[in-house]
């Protein structure tokens, strides 16, 4: 059963990784504007009209 202690260690490290990712995403401003990106991604890329 000692393996469970090891597994818990790993799961905890992974969870810490996700927490860090979340904190980083907040810091980088992903949650500052929650609307505009949803519109922006729908715009077509420029088509060259000759």
């Amino acid at each position: 059963m000692a393996v469970i202690a090891l597994l818990i260690g790993f799961s905890f490290i992974i969870a810490v990784g996700f927490l860090a990712a979340f904190l980083w995403s907040v810091k980088s401003g992903q949650y500052d504007d929650k609307y505009t990106p949803s519109v922006r991604m729908l715009f077509d890329n420029d088509k060259e009209i000759k």
Binding site: V26, K27, Y31, D32
Partner: peptide, 10 residues
């Protein structure tokens, strides 16, 4: 707002 998000995350 950001600090609130940090806190919720934690």
């Amino acid at each position: 707002t950001r600090s609130l998000y940090y806190k919720i995350g934690v």
